[in-house]
Design a protein around this nucleic acid. Structure first.
Length: 172
DNA sequence: CCCTGATTCGC
DNA sequence: GCGAATCAGG
């Protein structure tokens, strides 16, 4: 892959929009994040916003605070909720309340907190491949939360996708 | 371990 | 100019 004008332009755009090098590499295709970073340097586009490395960590933004509440309310099974709004994508991590697990029998009531809304090219072996939205739509995306190594979905979508037979019967 | 950008250096 | 390897950091 060579750096055509179009590709450089897209690189400039995405970089200015705050996407991470790896995300840009994924969208460009055919290049590694290192290639993107190298190119960014050569183009002297570096230093976008915050200087050194990973900025993806804020704690008490008003927006962040209100969102934490929203997520906490939505996910009744959540015990610990941390949300971070980075220069790139929105990312939320959480741990389920073990006790609460007994209450959420009806699968319809399982609340999936939030998705990273990744594009197809951004999926890796560890990202949840649960689809969001209309595959024919522009804003179609995948959940993208951590799926571990046990399957194609994060634990919440796995719970929806792989219902135990008995449970599925009563959930009817 | 996952990720981030920064730098170096052989090609 | 390019980008893998490496470094430094969250």
């Amino acid at each position: 892959m060579n750096w055509t004008d179009e590709r450089v332009e897209l690189l400039r755009k995405l970089w200015s929009e705050g996407l991470s090098a790896s995300q840009i590499a994924a969208q460009l295709g055919g290049v590694s994040r290192n290639a993107v970073i190298g190119k960014v340097h050569r183009l002297k586009l570096s230093g976008r916003g915050r200087a050194t490395a990973a900025p993806a960590r804020q704690k008490k933004t008003t927006q962040g605070a209100s969102m934490q509440k929203t997520v906490a309310r939505a996910a009744s099974a959540a015990r610990h909720v941390t949300a971070s709004i980075g220069a790139t994508a929105l990312q939320v991590q959480f741990d389920a309340e073990p006790v609460a697990r007994h209450y959420i029998r009806p699968v319809e009531n399982v609340v999936v907190p939030i998705s990273r809304n990744l594009q197809l090219v951004e999926l890796t072996e560890r990202t949840c491949k649960w689809p969001n939205g209309d595959p024919l739509s522009e804003d179609f995306s995948f959940c993208g939360n951590d799926a571990g190594e046990t399957g194609p979905y994060c634990k919440y979508h796995a719970r929806v996708a792989f219902q135990p037979a008995a449970e599925r019967r009563r959930a009817r």
